[in-house]
Design a protein around this nucleic acid. Structure first.
Length: 417
DNA sequence: AATCCACAGGAAGCCCGGGAAC
DNA sequence: GTTCCCGGGCTTCCTGTGGATT
Protein backbone atom coordinates (compact mmCIF):
# COMPACT_ATOMS: atom_id res chain seq x y z
CA UNK A 1 0.00 0.00 0.00
CA UNK A 2 1.31 3.40 -0.88
CA UNK A 3 2.09 5.92 1.78
CA UNK A 4 -0.59 8.50 2.20
CA UNK A 5 -3.24 6.41 0.53
CA UNK A 6 -6.29 5.73 2.60
CA UNK A 7 -6.62 2.00 3.27
CA UNK A 8 -9.48 0.32 1.46
CA UNK A 9 -10.01 -2.42 4.03
CA UNK A 10 -11.34 -1.87 7.49
CA UNK A 11 -11.57 -5.49 8.56
CA UNK A 12 -10.52 -7.85 5.83
CA UNK A 13 -11.37 -11.07 7.69
CA UNK A 14 -15.10 -10.45 7.40
CA UNK A 15 -14.80 -11.34 3.75
CA UNK A 16 -13.00 -14.59 4.30
CA UNK A 17 -14.88 -17.86 3.90
CA UNK A 18 -14.02 -18.90 7.45
CA UNK A 19 -16.00 -16.06 8.98
CA UNK A 20 -19.53 -16.81 10.15
CA UNK A 21 -21.58 -13.63 10.23
CA UNK A 22 -23.98 -12.73 13.03
CA UNK A 23 -26.67 -12.12 10.56
CA UNK A 24 -27.61 -14.38 7.69
CA UNK A 25 -29.79 -12.60 5.17
CA UNK A 26 -32.44 -14.68 3.41
CA UNK A 27 -31.92 -17.70 5.60
CA UNK A 28 -34.47 -16.89 8.31
CA UNK A 29 -36.71 -19.73 7.32
CA UNK A 30 -33.94 -22.32 7.45
CA UNK A 31 -32.67 -20.94 10.76
CA UNK A 32 -36.08 -21.19 12.38
CA UNK A 33 -36.69 -24.65 11.03
CA UNK A 34 -33.36 -25.91 12.29
CA UNK A 35 -33.71 -24.24 15.67
CA UNK A 36 -37.20 -25.64 16.13
CA UNK A 37 -36.01 -29.16 15.43
CA UNK A 38 -32.97 -28.94 17.64
CA UNK A 39 -34.81 -27.48 20.61
CA UNK A 40 -37.48 -30.19 20.66
CA UNK A 41 -35.42 -32.79 22.57
CA UNK A 42 -34.83 -30.29 25.37
CA UNK A 43 -38.55 -30.47 26.02
CA UNK A 44 -38.35 -34.21 26.31
CA UNK A 45 -39.23 -35.17 22.78
CA UNK A 46 -37.22 -37.68 20.81
CA UNK A 47 -34.76 -35.81 18.66
CA UNK A 48 -35.04 -35.93 14.91
CA UNK A 49 -32.19 -36.37 12.54
CA UNK A 50 -31.78 -33.63 10.03
CA UNK A 51 -30.43 -33.45 6.54
CA UNK A 52 -29.44 -30.14 5.04
CA UNK A 53 -28.72 -29.89 1.43
CA UNK A 54 -28.01 -27.34 -1.21
CA UNK A 55 -25.28 -26.28 -3.61
CA UNK A 56 -21.93 -25.03 -2.29
CA UNK A 57 -22.00 -21.51 -0.93
CA UNK A 58 -25.68 -21.49 -0.04
CA UNK A 59 -25.07 -20.95 3.65
CA UNK A 60 -25.54 -24.45 5.02
CA UNK A 61 -22.53 -24.52 7.30
CA UNK A 62 -23.03 -20.89 8.30
CA UNK A 63 -26.64 -21.57 9.26
CA UNK A 64 -25.69 -24.54 11.38
CA UNK A 65 -22.94 -22.60 13.12
CA UNK A 66 -25.33 -19.79 13.76
CA UNK A 67 -28.04 -21.97 15.27
CA UNK A 68 -25.52 -23.90 17.32
CA UNK A 69 -24.18 -20.69 18.80
CA UNK A 70 -27.69 -19.68 19.79
CA UNK A 71 -28.28 -23.10 21.24
CA UNK A 72 -25.18 -22.88 23.39
CA UNK A 73 -26.35 -19.54 24.69
CA UNK A 74 -29.49 -21.09 26.14
CA UNK A 75 -27.70 -24.11 27.54
CA UNK A 76 -27.75 -22.81 31.10
CA UNK A 77 -31.53 -22.74 31.03
CA UNK A 78 -31.83 -26.13 29.38
CA UNK A 79 -32.67 -29.28 31.35
CA UNK A 80 -29.66 -31.14 30.01
CA UNK A 81 -26.19 -30.43 28.78
CA UNK A 82 -25.79 -29.65 25.13
CA UNK A 83 -22.76 -30.97 23.38
CA UNK A 84 -22.09 -30.05 19.79
CA UNK A 85 -19.59 -32.10 17.83
CA UNK A 86 -18.57 -31.05 14.40
CA UNK A 87 -17.03 -33.57 12.04
CA UNK A 88 -15.92 -32.76 8.55
CA UNK A 89 -16.36 -36.00 6.68
CA UNK A 90 -14.02 -35.03 3.93
CA UNK A 91 -11.20 -35.15 6.47
CA UNK A 92 -12.50 -37.80 8.85
CA UNK A 93 -13.85 -40.23 6.34
CA UNK A 94 -14.04 -43.73 7.69
CA UNK A 95 -16.48 -45.37 10.04
CA UNK A 96 -13.85 -46.08 12.63
CA UNK A 97 -12.37 -42.62 12.66
CA UNK A 98 -15.72 -40.93 13.01
CA UNK A 99 -16.68 -43.07 15.94
CA UNK A 100 -13.26 -42.55 17.49
CA UNK A 101 -13.47 -38.79 16.99
CA UNK A 102 -16.87 -38.62 18.61
CA UNK A 103 -15.76 -40.77 21.54
CA UNK A 104 -12.63 -38.72 22.04
CA UNK A 105 -14.47 -35.43 22.19
CA UNK A 106 -16.93 -36.78 24.72
CA UNK A 107 -14.27 -38.53 26.78
CA UNK A 108 -12.26 -35.35 26.88
CA UNK A 109 -15.13 -33.32 28.24
CA UNK A 110 -16.03 -36.01 30.74
CA UNK A 111 -12.44 -36.05 31.91
CA UNK A 112 -12.52 -32.31 32.40
CA UNK A 113 -15.67 -32.37 34.45
CA UNK A 114 -15.17 -35.55 36.47
CA UNK A 115 -11.44 -36.21 36.39
CA UNK A 116 -9.41 -39.00 34.92
CA UNK A 117 -9.87 -41.25 37.93
CA UNK A 118 -13.57 -41.32 37.27
CA UNK A 119 -13.01 -42.63 33.79
CA UNK A 120 -10.78 -45.35 35.14
CA UNK A 121 -13.24 -46.25 37.84
CA UNK A 122 -15.91 -47.04 35.28
CA UNK A 123 -13.42 -48.73 32.97
CA UNK A 124 -13.33 -46.19 30.18
CA UNK A 125 -10.05 -45.17 28.56
CA UNK A 126 -9.13 -41.51 28.36
CA UNK A 127 -8.69 -41.83 24.63
CA UNK A 128 -9.65 -44.21 21.86
CA UNK A 129 -6.55 -45.42 20.01
CA UNK A 130 -6.28 -44.23 16.42
CA UNK A 131 -6.36 -47.83 15.30
CA UNK A 132 -6.52 -51.25 16.82
CA UNK A 133 -9.95 -51.62 18.36
CA UNK A 134 -12.70 -53.49 16.64
CA UNK A 135 -15.18 -50.97 15.32
CA UNK A 136 -18.07 -52.22 17.41
CA UNK A 137 -15.97 -51.79 20.52
CA UNK A 138 -15.58 -48.10 19.74
CA UNK A 139 -19.28 -47.88 19.13
CA UNK A 140 -20.06 -49.45 22.49
CA UNK A 141 -17.72 -47.14 24.32
CA UNK A 142 -19.31 -44.19 22.57
CA UNK A 143 -22.70 -45.27 23.85
CA UNK A 144 -21.33 -45.65 27.37
CA UNK A 145 -19.70 -42.25 27.47
CA UNK A 146 -22.84 -40.64 26.19
CA UNK A 147 -24.88 -42.19 28.94
CA UNK A 148 -22.56 -41.11 31.73
CA UNK A 149 -24.45 -37.86 32.09
CA UNK A 150 -27.71 -36.77 30.53
CA UNK A 151 -26.96 -34.69 27.52
CA UNK A 152 -28.06 -33.79 24.07
CA UNK A 153 -25.31 -34.52 21.60
CA UNK A 154 -25.65 -32.70 18.32
CA UNK A 155 -23.44 -34.41 15.81
CA UNK A 156 -22.78 -32.39 12.72
CA UNK A 157 -21.55 -34.37 9.75
CA UNK A 158 -20.37 -31.85 7.20
CA UNK A 159 -19.99 -33.15 3.65
CA UNK A 160 -21.68 -36.47 4.43
CA UNK A 161 -21.97 -37.18 0.75
CA UNK A 162 -18.19 -37.54 0.62
CA UNK A 163 -18.34 -40.02 3.46
CA UNK A 164 -20.96 -42.19 1.85
CA UNK A 165 -19.06 -42.11 -1.41
CA UNK A 166 -15.97 -43.40 0.30
CA UNK A 167 -17.11 -45.62 3.13
CA UNK A 168 -20.74 -46.39 2.49
CA UNK A 169 -23.69 -45.65 4.70
CA UNK A 170 -23.18 -48.20 7.45
CA UNK A 171 -21.91 -45.60 9.87
CA UNK A 172 -24.99 -43.48 9.28
CA UNK A 173 -27.17 -46.46 10.02
CA UNK A 174 -25.53 -46.90 13.41
CA UNK A 175 -25.45 -43.24 14.26
CA UNK A 176 -29.06 -42.57 13.42
CA UNK A 177 -30.20 -45.44 15.58
CA UNK A 178 -28.18 -44.61 18.64
CA UNK A 179 -31.12 -43.05 20.42
CA UNK A 180 -32.80 -46.40 20.92
CA UNK A 181 -29.74 -47.71 22.76
CA UNK A 182 -29.32 -44.70 25.02
CA UNK A 183 -30.92 -44.37 28.41
CA UNK A 184 -30.41 -40.83 29.62
CA UNK A 185 -28.87 -39.01 26.68
CA UNK A 186 -30.08 -38.06 23.26
CA UNK A 187 -28.40 -37.74 19.94
CA UNK A 188 -29.33 -35.61 17.01
CA UNK A 189 -27.54 -36.02 13.72
CA UNK A 190 -27.21 -33.16 11.31
CA UNK A 191 -25.99 -34.19 7.89
CA UNK A 192 -24.81 -31.52 5.51
CA UNK A 193 -24.58 -32.38 1.84
CA UNK A 194 -23.66 -30.52 -1.31
CA UNK A 195 -25.13 -33.22 -3.43
CA UNK A 196 -28.84 -32.81 -3.90
CA UNK A 197 -29.29 -36.39 -4.99
CA UNK A 198 -27.44 -37.64 -1.97
CA UNK A 199 -30.43 -39.39 -0.43
CA UNK A 200 -30.80 -41.70 -3.39
CA UNK A 201 -27.48 -43.38 -2.70
CA UNK A 202 -28.57 -44.40 0.77
CA UNK A 203 -30.06 -47.58 2.04
CA UNK A 204 -33.78 -47.05 2.52
CA UNK A 205 -33.61 -47.51 6.29
CA UNK A 206 -30.90 -44.89 6.60
CA UNK A 207 -32.74 -42.65 4.22
CA UNK A 208 -35.85 -42.55 6.30
CA UNK A 209 -34.10 -41.97 9.61
CA UNK A 210 -31.57 -39.42 8.43
CA UNK A 211 -34.07 -37.64 6.27
CA UNK A 212 -36.71 -37.31 8.97
CA UNK A 213 -36.37 -33.62 8.61
CA UNK A 214 -34.97 -32.05 5.50
CA UNK A 215 -33.99 -28.48 5.06
CA UNK A 216 -33.26 -27.32 1.58
CA UNK A 217 -30.99 -24.41 0.82
CA UNK A 218 -31.88 -22.95 -2.54
CA UNK A 219 -29.20 -21.00 -4.38
CA UNK A 220 -29.19 -17.27 -3.74
CA UNK A 221 -30.43 -15.16 -6.57
CA UNK A 222 -28.78 -11.97 -7.75
CA UNK A 223 -30.53 -9.54 -5.45
CA UNK A 224 -30.11 -11.77 -2.41
CA UNK A 225 -26.42 -11.97 -3.12
CA UNK A 226 -26.36 -8.21 -3.32
CA UNK A 227 -27.87 -7.97 0.16
CA UNK A 228 -25.24 -10.30 1.53
CA UNK A 229 -22.41 -8.50 -0.18
CA UNK A 230 -23.63 -5.07 0.88
CA UNK A 231 -23.73 -6.12 4.49
CA UNK A 232 -20.25 -7.58 4.44
CA UNK A 233 -18.84 -4.74 2.40
CA UNK A 234 -20.08 -2.34 5.02
CA UNK A 235 -18.20 -4.27 7.70
CA UNK A 236 -15.03 -4.88 5.75
CA UNK A 237 -14.33 -1.78 3.72
CA UNK A 238 -13.73 1.80 4.71
CA UNK A 239 -16.69 4.07 4.10
CA UNK A 240 -17.40 5.08 0.56
CA UNK A 241 -14.63 3.16 -1.17
CA UNK A 242 -16.92 0.80 -3.04
CA UNK A 243 -18.01 2.42 -6.26
CA UNK A 244 -21.51 1.92 -7.49
CA UNK A 245 -22.00 -1.14 -9.65
CA UNK A 246 -19.29 -3.14 -7.94
CA UNK A 247 -21.62 -5.05 -5.66
CA UNK A 248 -24.04 -5.67 -8.49
CA UNK A 249 -21.31 -7.03 -10.72
CA UNK A 250 -19.95 -9.37 -8.07
CA UNK A 251 -23.45 -10.61 -7.32
CA UNK A 252 -24.31 -11.11 -10.97
CA UNK A 253 -21.14 -13.11 -11.55
CA UNK A 254 -21.82 -15.41 -8.65
CA UNK A 255 -25.50 -15.76 -9.48
CA UNK A 256 -24.46 -17.17 -12.81
CA UNK A 257 -22.32 -19.69 -10.96
CA UNK A 258 -25.23 -21.34 -9.14
CA UNK A 259 -25.71 -18.59 -6.58
CA UNK A 260 -22.57 -19.35 -4.67
CA UNK A 261 -22.18 -16.74 -1.96
CA UNK A 262 -18.67 -17.83 -1.15
CA UNK A 263 -17.66 -17.13 -4.73
CA UNK A 264 -19.27 -13.70 -4.55
CA UNK A 265 -17.47 -12.81 -1.34
CA UNK A 266 -14.16 -14.03 -2.71
CA UNK A 267 -14.66 -11.90 -5.75
CA UNK A 268 -15.35 -8.85 -3.64
CA UNK A 269 -12.36 -9.44 -1.42
CA UNK A 270 -9.97 -10.01 -4.30
CA UNK A 271 -11.35 -6.90 -5.99
CA UNK A 272 -10.46 -5.04 -2.81
CA UNK A 273 -6.99 -6.50 -2.89
CA UNK A 274 -6.66 -5.48 -6.52
CA UNK A 275 -7.47 -1.90 -5.75
CA UNK A 276 -5.05 -2.06 -2.86
CA UNK A 277 -2.15 -3.10 -5.06
CA UNK A 278 -3.17 -0.40 -7.52
CA UNK A 279 -2.80 2.11 -4.73
CA UNK A 280 -6.33 3.17 -5.48
CA UNK A 281 -8.66 4.62 -2.88
CA UNK A 282 -11.71 3.19 -4.58
CA UNK A 283 -12.84 -0.22 -5.67
CA UNK A 284 -14.04 0.00 -9.24
CA UNK A 285 -15.78 -2.25 -11.70
CA UNK A 286 -12.41 -2.67 -13.37
CA UNK A 287 -11.04 -4.15 -10.18
CA UNK A 288 -13.84 -6.67 -10.12
CA UNK A 289 -13.06 -7.70 -13.69
CA UNK A 290 -9.41 -8.12 -12.79
CA UNK A 291 -10.35 -10.05 -9.70
CA UNK A 292 -12.51 -12.35 -11.78
CA UNK A 293 -9.66 -13.10 -14.13
CA UNK A 294 -7.33 -13.64 -11.26
CA UNK A 295 -9.62 -16.12 -9.56
CA UNK A 296 -10.17 -18.03 -12.78
CA UNK A 297 -6.44 -18.14 -13.35
CA UNK A 298 -5.75 -19.36 -9.84
CA UNK A 299 -8.27 -22.08 -10.38
CA UNK A 300 -6.55 -23.45 -13.47
CA UNK A 301 -3.13 -23.21 -11.85
CA UNK A 302 -4.59 -25.15 -8.95
CA UNK A 303 -5.94 -27.82 -11.27
CA UNK A 304 -2.60 -28.17 -13.02
CA UNK A 305 -0.74 -28.37 -9.75
CA UNK A 306 -2.77 -31.35 -8.63
CA UNK A 307 -2.13 -33.25 -11.84
CA UNK A 308 -0.02 -36.41 -11.61
CA UNK A 309 3.61 -35.96 -12.62
CA UNK A 310 3.27 -37.72 -15.95
CA UNK A 311 0.31 -35.57 -16.98
CA UNK A 312 2.26 -32.48 -16.07
CA UNK A 313 5.07 -33.61 -18.27
CA UNK A 314 2.73 -34.23 -21.17
CA UNK A 315 1.17 -30.83 -20.68
CA UNK A 316 4.57 -29.23 -20.49
CA UNK A 317 5.50 -30.89 -23.76
CA UNK A 318 2.50 -29.24 -25.36
CA UNK A 319 3.59 -25.88 -23.95
CA UNK A 320 7.10 -26.25 -25.32
CA UNK A 321 5.75 -27.11 -28.75
CA UNK A 322 3.19 -24.31 -28.68
CA UNK A 323 5.89 -21.79 -27.93
CA UNK A 324 8.08 -23.17 -30.63
CA UNK A 325 5.68 -23.17 -33.51
CA UNK A 326 2.44 -21.54 -34.55
CA UNK A 327 1.60 -24.65 -36.52
CA UNK A 328 -0.90 -27.18 -35.25
CA UNK A 329 0.59 -29.62 -32.79
CA UNK A 330 0.09 -33.29 -33.39
CA UNK A 331 0.08 -36.07 -30.82
CA UNK A 332 3.15 -37.74 -32.28
CA UNK A 333 5.18 -34.60 -31.75
CA UNK A 334 3.94 -34.30 -28.22
CA UNK A 335 5.10 -37.81 -27.56
CA UNK A 336 8.53 -37.07 -28.98
CA UNK A 337 9.07 -34.07 -26.73
CA UNK A 338 7.61 -35.97 -23.84
CA UNK A 339 10.18 -38.72 -24.29
CA UNK A 340 12.97 -36.17 -24.28
CA UNK A 341 11.67 -34.64 -21.09
CA UNK A 342 11.41 -38.02 -19.41
CA UNK A 343 14.95 -38.94 -20.33
CA UNK A 344 16.20 -35.61 -19.13
CA UNK A 345 14.53 -36.00 -15.77
CA UNK A 346 15.08 -39.71 -15.44
CA UNK A 347 11.46 -40.58 -15.31
CA UNK A 348 9.84 -43.69 -16.71
CA UNK A 349 8.62 -43.25 -20.24
CA UNK A 350 5.03 -44.26 -20.73
CA UNK A 351 3.78 -45.86 -23.91
CA UNK A 352 2.17 -43.79 -26.65
CA UNK A 353 -1.10 -45.51 -25.86
CA UNK A 354 -1.07 -44.24 -22.31
CA UNK A 355 0.10 -40.77 -23.27
CA UNK A 356 -2.83 -40.65 -25.67
CA UNK A 357 -5.14 -41.22 -22.74
CA UNK A 358 -3.39 -38.55 -20.72
CA UNK A 359 -3.90 -36.12 -23.57
CA UNK A 360 -7.59 -36.98 -23.57
CA UNK A 361 -7.75 -36.38 -19.83
CA UNK A 362 -6.16 -32.96 -20.21
CA UNK A 363 -8.73 -32.28 -22.88
CA UNK A 364 -11.54 -33.23 -20.50
CA UNK A 365 -10.17 -30.84 -17.92
CA UNK A 366 -10.32 -28.09 -20.50
CA UNK A 367 -6.62 -27.35 -20.22
CA UNK A 368 -6.03 -28.31 -23.81
CA UNK A 369 -8.24 -29.00 -26.78
CA UNK A 370 -7.65 -32.16 -28.76
CA UNK A 371 -9.47 -33.00 -31.93
CA UNK A 372 -9.03 -35.85 -34.32
CA UNK A 373 -8.00 -34.95 -37.84
CA UNK A 374 -7.39 -37.02 -40.91
CA UNK A 375 -4.42 -35.89 -42.88
CA UNK A 376 -4.86 -38.33 -45.70
CA UNK A 377 -1.61 -39.88 -46.67
CA UNK A 378 -0.07 -38.46 -43.51
CA UNK A 379 -2.29 -40.42 -41.27
CA UNK A 380 -4.91 -39.90 -38.70
CA UNK A 381 -3.95 -38.07 -35.55
CA UNK A 382 -5.00 -35.66 -32.87
CA UNK A 383 -4.40 -31.95 -33.13
CA UNK A 384 -3.67 -30.43 -29.79
CA UNK A 385 -4.05 -26.78 -28.79
CA UNK A 386 -3.29 -25.12 -25.50
CA UNK A 387 -6.21 -23.45 -23.72
CA UNK A 388 -4.28 -21.79 -20.94
CA UNK A 389 -1.41 -19.37 -20.88
CA UNK A 390 2.04 -21.02 -20.95
CA UNK A 391 3.05 -18.91 -17.96
CA UNK A 392 0.35 -20.54 -15.89
CA UNK A 393 1.60 -23.97 -16.75
CA UNK A 394 5.19 -23.04 -16.02
CA UNK A 395 4.18 -21.67 -12.64
CA UNK A 396 2.29 -24.80 -11.73
CA UNK A 397 4.65 -27.35 -13.19
CA UNK A 398 8.05 -26.01 -12.33
CA UNK A 399 7.34 -25.39 -8.66
CA UNK A 400 6.81 -28.91 -7.45
CA UNK A 401 8.31 -30.77 -10.31
CA UNK A 402 11.66 -29.98 -8.77
CA UNK A 403 13.18 -29.11 -12.10
CA UNK A 404 16.06 -28.34 -9.82
CA UNK A 405 16.77 -24.92 -11.18
CA UNK A 406 17.51 -26.49 -14.50
CA UNK A 407 15.06 -24.40 -16.44
CA UNK A 408 13.97 -26.19 -19.54
CA UNK A 409 15.25 -24.36 -22.54
CA UNK A 410 13.43 -24.48 -25.79
CA UNK A 411 16.74 -24.67 -27.56
CA UNK A 412 17.35 -27.94 -25.86
CA UNK A 413 15.06 -29.52 -28.38
CA UNK A 414 15.94 -29.95 -32.01
CA UNK A 415 13.91 -27.87 -34.40
CA UNK A 416 11.28 -29.89 -36.11
CA UNK A 417 11.51 -30.39 -39.81
C1' DA B 1 -9.35 -48.25 -57.18
C1' DA B 2 -5.90 -49.58 -54.23
C1' DT B 3 -2.66 -48.32 -51.00
C1' DC B 4 -0.90 -46.60 -46.95
C1' DC B 5 0.21 -43.30 -43.32
C1' DA B 6 0.13 -42.31 -38.32
C1' DC B 7 -2.13 -42.61 -35.36
C1' DA B 8 -7.06 -43.51 -32.38
C1' DG B 9 -8.91 -46.20 -29.17
C1' DG B 10 -11.00 -50.98 -27.62
C1' DA B 11 -9.86 -55.41 -25.05
C1' DA B 12 -7.36 -58.06 -22.05
C1' DG B 13 -4.25 -58.65 -18.73
C1' DC B 14 -0.28 -57.34 -15.49
C1' DC B 15 1.26 -55.07 -11.30
C1' DC B 16 0.83 -52.82 -7.11
C1' DG B 17 -1.05 -50.68 -2.97
C1' DG B 18 -4.68 -50.60 0.33
C1' DG B 19 -8.65 -52.18 2.70
C1' DA B 20 -11.66 -56.04 4.19
C1' DA B 21 -12.11 -60.63 5.64
C1' DC B 22 -10.33 -64.61 7.64
C1' DG C 1 -0.73 -61.89 10.72
C1' DT C 2 -2.16 -63.73 6.13
C1' DT C 3 -5.07 -63.99 2.36
C1' DC C 4 -8.22 -62.20 -0.72
C1' DC C 5 -10.15 -58.82 -3.48
C1' DC C 6 -10.55 -54.50 -5.82
C1' DG C 7 -9.44 -50.59 -8.49
C1' DG C 8 -6.31 -47.69 -10.93
C1' DG C 9 -2.36 -47.08 -13.71
C1' DC C 10 -0.15 -49.06 -17.18
C1' DT C 11 1.33 -52.19 -21.18
C1' DT C 12 0.57 -55.24 -25.06
C1' DC C 13 -1.82 -56.35 -28.86
C1' DC C 14 -4.98 -55.34 -31.81
C1' DT C 15 -8.38 -53.43 -35.32
C1' DG C 16 -10.14 -49.30 -37.48
C1' DT C 17 -9.97 -44.90 -39.95
C1' DG C 18 -10.31 -41.81 -44.27
C1' DG C 19 -8.29 -38.96 -47.54
C1' DA C 20 -3.69 -37.91 -50.13
C1' DT C 21 -1.09 -40.42 -52.98
C1' DT C 22 0.07 -43.80 -56.35
Amino acid sequence: MLLGTRPVFKRREYLRPSYTPENLPHRDEQIHQLARILVAPLRGETPSNILLYGKPGTGKTATVNHVVKELEKVESRAPMKIRVIYVNCEVVNTQYRILATLSDVLLESLKNSRGEEFLESIDLPSKVPRTGWPTDEVYKSLLRVLDQEPQLAVIILDEVDKLVQKSGDEILYHLTRMNSSLKSSKVSIIGISNDTNFLEYLDSRVRSSLGEEEIIFPPYNGSQLQDILRERAEMSFADGVVESGVIQLCAANAAREHGDARRALDLLRVAGEMSETDGSEKITIGHVRKAYERIEQDKTVEVIKTLPAQSKLVLYSVVLLAERTPKAIVSGEVYGVYQDLCRKHRLDILTPRRVGDLISELDMLGIITAKIVNRGRYGRTKEVALNVHPIQVQAAVQEDFSLRGEVLQLSAFPARS
